[in-house]
């Protein structure tokens, strides 16, 4: 029985620098395998849709515009993503990559969480063509 047992830690930490990271001012390098925002490389994609089928949170949609011409658009909902990387494991072509250091995803506006990957013209056509259909989930999410 001692009156206090942690005085050594306490006094020591008066001399030692604090364990605190100065985060927003100094950014620590993220670990190599950190699962951050998903990235899609369209070159090898066959539009099989396995990624969106296996996604536990419906965060991925592969929109097939023209399968032969390989015109695909990936619609990624950051706000639904659970960062489990099952899509990366499921993709047989290796199009998907989650090992990024983009983890500062916080936003004040939920609309920034709807991300489209793909050819810009294709994305524009989707956004124009399906505004009515997309309107509801966008407003809710």
């Amino acid at each position: 029985m001692k009156l206090t047992t942690m005085w050594k830690d306490a006094l020591g930490s008066l001399i030692k620098p604090a364990a605190t990271q100065r985060y927003p001012f100094v950014r620590r390098e993220a670990p190599e395998h950190l699962r951050g925002q998903l990235h899609w490389d369209p070159s090898a994609c066959t539009g099989c849709g396995l990624c969106s089928k296996d996604c536990p949170a419906d965060a991925l949609e592969v929109i097939v515009l023209d399968k032969k011409a390989k015109r695909f658009v990936m619609h990624y909902h950051v706000d639904r993503c659970t960062f489990c990387a099952q899509c990366v494991a499921s993709c047989r072509q290796g199009c998907l990559d989650m090992e990024s250091d983009e983890w500062e995803l916080a936003a004040l506006d939920p609309r920034t969480f709807d991300i489209y990957y793909g050819n810009e013209a294709d994305i524009a056509s989707i956004l124009d063509g399906s505004t009515e259909e997309e309107a509801e989930p966008a407003a809710a999410g």
């Binding site: 993503c81 983890w103 995803l105 916080a106 004040l108 939920p110 969480f113």
Partner: peptide, 9 residues
């Protein structure tokens, strides 16, 4: 007012 995605962030 603010949204922080991540599972967990």
């Amino acid at each position: 007012d603010a949204y922080i995605p991540g599972c967990p962030p």
